[in-house]
């Protein structure tokens, strides 16, 4: 058979044949699964889940801080103000365009900070300029859609208001997580997406700590292609 230009059938037919199926079934019912796994988070209260999220964050080298809605803007401004090693004098910030951020006065607080040299709020009209800003930014600030207690993971969907670059290109990623959205395991997130009628976002990124490698002699190095430092701010 000639190379390339194969149809789905060309891929499916040999599989069906191998399986002894005359044709591909129109519908396959999922069986009743025999096994259900116990998880370490089973039976934990909401408050315990937040505690677990926080303590697991420490294990994966994330700095976690708690605050309330009223102190959120200030908490973030403080993190930015404290700086990180190797970041130099310039301190530019790229922020997701979140109503919640505007509401608590985050953008104003950052503009008012004498540390911040440039603040860019993601703007779908600005196109590639958003990515260019993130490329040179020291801080990227996002609002996670949820947190996962078991592994201190934050769930970060991509949208027109929050591009992929914000949590990826800057030296530091600050993720805000609402304590009420912290669930036991990834399963609850998956179930919620499965139950929704909406198409999945083009990307849902599950982030657990700074980018890291152990490729050279198994020595752990943080800050490979993604952020070198990650902060979670838990809003209660």
């Amino acid at each position: 058979m000639a190379l390339g230009n194969k149809k789905l059938e060309d891929l499916l037919n040999p599989i069906s044949e191998q399986l002894g199926h005359a044709n591909v079934a129109d519908n396959v019912e999922m069986p009743e699964w025999e096994f259900k796994a116990k998880r370490v988070t089973d039976g934990l209260s909401a408050a315990e889940l937040v505690d677990l999220f926080e303590s697991e964050a420490g294990k994966i080298r994330v700095t976690a801080k708690r605050c309330t809605k009223d102190t959120l803007a200030q908490t973030i401004a403080e993190i930015v103000g404290a700086g990180v090693p190797d970041s130099g004098d310039a301190c530019s910030v790229v922020c997701a365009d979140e109503e919640a951020f505007a509401e608590i006065g985050l953008y104003d607080a950052l503009r008012a900070s004498d540390k911040v040299t440039d603040l860019h709020v993601w703007d779908e009209q600005a196109g590639q300029a958003n990515v260019d800003k993130a490329y040179v930014a020291t801080y990227g600030i996002t609002y996670a859609s949820a947190g996962i207690a078991e592994s201190a993971t934050i769930v970060q969907p991509t949208s027109a208001k929050c591009g992929r670059a914000i949590s990826l290109l800057p030296l530091v990623h600050i993720a805000v997580v609402n304590a009420r959205t912290i669930v036991p395991t990834m399963l609850e997130i998956m179930q919620a997406y499965a139950a929704s009628d909406e198409k999945l976002p083009s990307q849902v990124c599950f982030i657990s700590g700074p980018s890291a490698t152990a490729d050279i002699e198994l020595v752990r190095v943080e800050g490979v292609h993604g952020p070198m430092y990650v902060n979670y701010v838990i809003v209660e």
Partner: peptide, 19 residues
């Protein structure tokens, strides 16, 4: 978990500037 786990469903959506 690894630092990143991404679930990708198609090209960039309306209004998205990366991806």
């Amino acid at each position: 978990m690894t630092a990143y786990f991404s679930l990708d469903s198609g090209p960039r959506g309306t209004g998205e500037v990366d991806g």
